[in-house]
Amino acid sequence: MSDLRTELKQNIIEQLNLEELEVADIDNDVPLFGDGLGLDSIDVLELIVMLEKDYGIKLTDPDQGKEIFASIEKMAEYIEANRTK
């Protein structure tokens, strides 16, 4: 498992207050929404803030979110391709 994926899991657990989860509980491919981690619309906003704050990525097209936040793997791929810090 790459450091970025682990880092993302740690950040998500911390910033979204998923206190009953640990890094090892989150698979790279598990859906972040719906039946996966069960994140909600406010969590999406937090993830958007996290992308900007931690990786310098500003999302301008809301439709992108569905694909980018599909899983840890998808998020990591997007960050690796677009990060500015």
Binding site: L16, N17, I42, D43, L45, E46, V49, E52, K53
Partner: peptide, 9 residues
């Protein structure tokens, strides 16, 4: 700085 949506709600 950057506000937190989950605090704001």
């Amino acid at each position: 700085g950057m506000v937190s949506p989950s605090v704001f709600v």
